[in-house]
Amino acid sequence: MTKKKLFDSRRDGEQAASALLDWYDRVRRPFPWRGTTDPYKIWISEVMLQQTQTSRAADYYLRWTGLFPTAEALARAPEEDVLKAWEGLGYYGRARNLLAAAKVIAGTLGGRLPESYEGLLALPGVGPYTAGAVASIAFGLPVPAVDANGKRVFSRLLDLENPVDRSAGEETIREAFALLLSHDRPGDFNQAVMELGATLCLPRSPKCGKCPLSGICRARERGTVLLRPVFSGKEKGETAEGKMIVLLREGKAFLRKRPSRGLWAGFEEFPWEAPPAEPPLPSALSHAEGADFGLIRCSFTRWRITLRVVIVPAQDGMEQNTPGGRWAGGDELASLPLPSGSARVRKMLFRAGLIACPSRRPEAGAE
């Protein structure tokens, strides 16, 4: 792609970038990570912002940086503490990758994040977007950081007919992004594009009249704004129903441990089943009778799951054939990182008084 395809002249591109930055300076929202120049904290914020609403990420960011203020502090933390601090954000592989990368940073890089795009990209769990964001915001490198908002903005600027989730569309957007990118303020430019996509260039109700880039937006000129971006055909999500069994005995609840690989690897949870998304429980649990405790809904990969929660007074042998299972009382239960469905049920148990509520808030971080 040449500059002519997006702009009539180099000056037009520079003016568009300047207009975007001027707009950003006036309207940018005061999130806590925008007040720091610490590369570690910028990295944490960018990882949190993936798959998480910005307003929600702010609370987690403040809590996380209080618990783990440096890469060295994070590297020393037990995995259970890291997962507990992440609880409620979902996609727990992000937390495990942060811990693995922190160990690399602390162990071989003197506690400092790499100051190059390639060095950042080599860290566990760091992809092109995160590497670009940290490189530009923390180190001032002129590298694009193209997230979902950026794809939407540039697909409209270009009136791009190619799917943005395919390599050809992604490459076109990245090239156009690089052409417009300010070399004087690359970090602010990347954040300005994200801000534009989050506040004006919205998926269903774009506010084109307020957009600083409306003058170069081909989709607006051609009336195709709501047709962009284009996505490839995706597999539709599937639904399943099942139940979650809460075994109670002497003020404690039974937890099983998930396998070391796969969904929520290594986490403890209340046993549940929802074939074919989740295999049936052992017969003693699956057919246990108890009191209806309501419904919960959760999602993962392509599945949308509805579970009926059943409170069951434990009988001898019910928990057998459940590898890694154990009993946990109120204080311990509150401190454990749990998948979102089990975290919601834990909160319900405390509120109903079925398990003694510990002195600290059990629901901190839970969904």
Rank of each mutant, 00 (worst) to 15 (best):
L21S: 04
T224P: 03
L255W: 08
A219Q: 07
R26G: 11
L20M: 14
C298P: 04
S299T: 15
N190G: 10
A219V: 03
I105H: 02
G233F: 11
D184I: 14
A274E: 09
W272D: 02
K252T: 03
S167M: 13
K236F: 14
R152T: 00
T54A: 13
D25V: 10
G93V: 08
E319V: 02
P69K: 08
T70V: 12
P362I: 07
I305D: 01
G127R: 04
A176P: 05
L123N: 04
D22W: 13
T306E: 14
L141Q: 09
A176W: 06
N97F: 13
S260L: 14
P124R: 04
F154I: 03
L98E: 01
F254W: 06
E170D: 14
A198D: 15
L180P: 01
G317Q: 02
L120Q: 11
K252V: 03
A343G: 12
G88M: 10
L285C: 03
A352Q: 06
I311F: 06
S286L: 11
I355T: 09
R185T: 08
G251A: 09
A277C: 06
G294I: 06
A253Y: 09
L160Y: 12
Y91Q: 02
S205K: 15
T54N: 04
Y40I: 04
Y91G: 00
L295S: 02
V47H: 05
E289T: 10
C298Y: 13
P206M: 05
E80L: 10
S335T: 08
G341C: 05
L89K: 03
A219W: 07
L180N: 00
V153W: 13
A57M: 07
K5A: 11
A106T: 14
P39D: 00
P271C: 00
A95Y: 04
I173R: 01
F68S: 05
S55V: 15
E175H: 08
K257A: 11
S283R: 09
A122Y: 12
E273S: 04
I105A: 01
G223S: 11
A100T: 02
M194F: 11
R28I: 05
D8N: 15
L98N: 00
F267L: 09
A145V: 13
S45Y: 11
R308V: 10
W327C: 00
R26A: 12
G187T: 10
A73L: 12
E170W: 11
W327F: 06
K3V: 15
Y60T: 04
L200V: 09
A58D: 08
H183L: 06
F189Q: 05
T54W: 11
G223W: 12
E79W: 10
A138Q: 06
I296Q: 02
D12K: 15
A176T: 09
T322R: 00
L99P: 00
P128I: 02
R249H: 05
R302L: 15
L202Q: 05
E289A: 01
D59T: 10
G119Q: 09
Y91D: 01
A133P: 07
A148G: 14
V310L: 11
R304H: 13
R185I: 14
